[in-house]
Design a protein around this nucleic acid. Structure first.
Lengths: 198, 198
DNA sequence: ACATTTCTTGAACAACTGTTCAATATGAAG
DNA sequence: CTTCATATTGAACAGTTGTTCAAGAAATGT
């Protein structure tokens, strides 16, 4: 039942090698580039081993989806070492950081979204991850503006996510760095605007 | 060489039936659901006919991409019957209209973007269509604010497209109608803001 | 009537797909 | 060394894939 038996040395456990290979192929060639054989080849492993660690192709892709979702969630995780408004500002700027704006990550996200459109199971997982991301962002907004009522925090988080999704997508088509920067400023405006009057 | 010979009656020309079937399958099941046989079945046509009208599977998908791109361009086409600012406003509101916010169209767009990520040829076509859309939108912005310098029109168009892309994507995950409406208002703010001071 | 071009069909082919499984290797426990 | 669970291999199976092609149907021109 143990995951790995600490394969003393450079050879990392093959299971994560396989998952990594699947992520790579998915981001580069889309789902039709992810065949069990291609994954095995990319991971330097025999075909049978892929089906040993992942029952299905479905399970393999599901694992890929989970790994990206967890990565996303970390973007809005609270960071106790910073002041609340700095936490929020940092989270908003991070989406245009070097690690996030790689084609690999953006492309991966896109393909997973497309997959979610085609398969109900993936759609559910994706929607749940989306909600948790929204919650995390709303919490950051709330901490930074303690006076704001909770429902307005959630509205602002939703508005920010719309712009962020647009940035991710637009960055893939051809990075207009200036437009990205202006959009980040826009998310900051939304986050730190004075309470709305109604 | 003629495209169709006016097949007097209800039976529309099979070529567009095939293209329509491909679009349907693509939006519902993604690219892996678009097999030549599935397209033939969906179009009520023999397998060979698909390869008769479209040399390749590549050609078929390329045709699908073109048809969606043309549909997109029509969104920012000038409408001489309206005042310039009304043209712009209408174009901005149209992206949340009933015809655009159908899962069929959104899903189609998403799958085509994903395809563009995987195949260089599609990426080029997509990027060109994106640029033309940007030009169209910038022209509408310019007509509505004649005092604005051209480069600021293009910047605003780029900013608007970021938000629009975000709306399209977010609508697919679970339509938060209120967030969509607020985002439309945001694109209007961007479009009609006073000239920036610099 | 015939000849000719344009459509339309489905069988055939080779290549690839996901999955299963008996065989073997590996390494730890006794 | 033997025992045993775990890890790893590649061949084999039944389906599906894109593409080709000879055959025929339908329409057109003469």
């Amino acid at each position: 039942m143990g995951i790995n038996t600490v394969n003393s040395g450079e050879q990392i456990d093959r299971q994560s090698r396989i998952l990594e290979a699947a992520l790579d192929l998915l981001s580069r060639h889309g789902i039709s580039g992810v065949s069990m054989r291609a994954v095995a080849r990319e991971a330097g492993v025999a075909l049978g081993l892929v089906n040993y660690y992942f029952d299905d192709k479905m399970s393999l892709v599901r694992a890929a989806l989970h790994s990206v979702d967890e990565h996303d969630l970390r973007l809005v995780a609270p960071d106790p070492s910073l002041a609340p408004d700095e936490q929020l500002r940092k989270a908003l700027h991070r989406v245009a950081g070097a690690e996030l704006l790689t084609t690999r990550y953006l492309s991966l996200r896109l393909h997973l979204w497309a997959l979610a459109q085609a398969h109900e199971d993936f759609a559910l997982i994706n929607a749940a991850a989306f909600d948790r991301y929204l919650d995390g962002l709303a919490a950051l907004v709330s901490n930074a503006n303690p006076a704001l009522p909770p429902e307005e925090c959630r509205d602002r988080a939703a508005d920010i996510v719309v712009v962020q999704n647009g940035m991710w997508l637009t960055a893939l088509l051809g990075i207009d760095k200036a437009a990205i920067q202006r959009s980040i400023a826009r998310t900051e405006q939304i986050a730190f605007a004075p309470p709305r009057d109604n």
